[in-house]
């Protein structure tokens, strides 16, 4: 069983009556590649925050990746105009 297994009683039809429960499901363990930001290069243009499909990048300057949720899709690295983000295999520094 993975870490996000809840023991809460299930409702018929998988209905979830407590909104925002996705926050409890940390999906960071799905990641095989990790985005690493070089803050020397980052211009805080917020493109990575805008494009992140999982809202795993914070809306602050400079933006930070929340590794509890980041699935490592690499979109942030792809859209970064100054190539400040590198995808690094998990387990490597």
């Amino acid at each position: 069983m993975s870490s996000h297994t809840s023991t809460k009683k299930l409702l018929p039809g998988a209905v979830i009556m407590d909104p925002g429960s996705t926050e409890q499901n940390e999906t960071g363990s799905w990641r095989s590649m990790r985005p690493v930001t070089d803050y020397e290069k980052c211009t805080s243009c917020m493109s990575c925050w805008l494009y992140c499909p999982d809202s795993a990048i914070s809306c602050e300057k400079p933006p930070k990746v929340d590794y509890r949720y980041c699935k490592g899709c690499g979109i942030c690295a792809n859209v970064c105009p100054v190539k400040a983000i590198t995808m690094v295999p998990e387990g490597q520094k």
Binding site: M1, S2, H4, T5, L10, G13, A14, V15, I16, M17, D18, P19, S21
Partner: peptide, 18 residues
């Protein structure tokens, strides 16, 4: 007024129960 979710993902930990 009372937000909720339907159609959530049924990961292997949950699907069988449903």
């Amino acid at each position: 007024e009372h937000p909720g979710s339907i159609g959530a993902v049924g990961v292997p930990d949950y699907y069988e129960e449903f």
